[in-house]
Amino acid sequence: MAIALRLSRGGAKKRPYYRIVASDSRSPRDGKYLEQVGTYNPVLPKDSEDRVKLIEDRVRYWLGVGAQPTDRVARFLDAAGILERKAKNNPKKAEPGEKAKERAEEKAEKAREAEEAAKAAAEAPAEEPAAEEAPAEEAAAEEEKAAE
């Protein structure tokens, strides 16, 4: 029988409270367990002493008979100085996903196109606005003559 040291959830909706238990790894999360070896109350502030409580001698016993802690329980045991947790290395942790990369590429491409359009507009001769103003001036002159 494989034994796990893990969290068993209790408490009300949106108000979690966990028992740290030694249980058969095949049993349900909140199901039957062999022994309760501590508690964890995530609602309390991080610096509170009552946030994580462990019965050290029982935890050491279960570790001695081969119980495997889950990642979260291993963190608690490491903080309590009972078990040293191996540091995990995930070099891709901060790297964005594929879709985020695609969106960033599309945004950069649109920015380049807008920049090229602005550059082309700046290099174009300034005769076009003058051509548009000329008919407007003629129309204004014709209106003045008609008014006289």
Rank of each mutant, 00 (worst) to 15 (best):
T70N: 02
I82C: 03
E49L: 05
W62G: 03
V21Y: 00
A141M: 13
A126R: 15
L77D: 10
A139M: 00
R103F: 03
R51H: 08
E138L: 14
D24Q: 04
E106P: 02
S25P: 02
I82Y: 08
R60M: 07
A147L: 09
A94D: 15
G31K: 03
Y18K: 14
K53A: 15
A108H: 01
R112G: 07
G81I: 10
A100I: 06
K53S: 14
Y61V: 00
V37R: 06
R75W: 07
S8P: 06
A131D: 03
S23K: 14
M1T: 12
A4N: 07
Y17C: 10
R6Q: 05
E113S: 10
T70L: 02
Y18R: 10
E56R: 13
R26C: 03
A94Q: 14
L34F: 09
A12G: 05
A74G: 04
M1C: 06
P42L: 11
P69T: 03
A80I: 11
K145P: 02
L77Y: 13
A114H: 06
E123F: 09
K46N: 13
P28D: 00
S25T: 01
K53E: 08
G10L: 15
A108C: 00
A124Y: 02
K53H: 08
E138I: 10
K14D: 12
P96C: 10
E142S: 12
G81E: 15
R85E: 13
K88R: 06
A131C: 00
K92P: 01
R60N: 05
D57C: 01
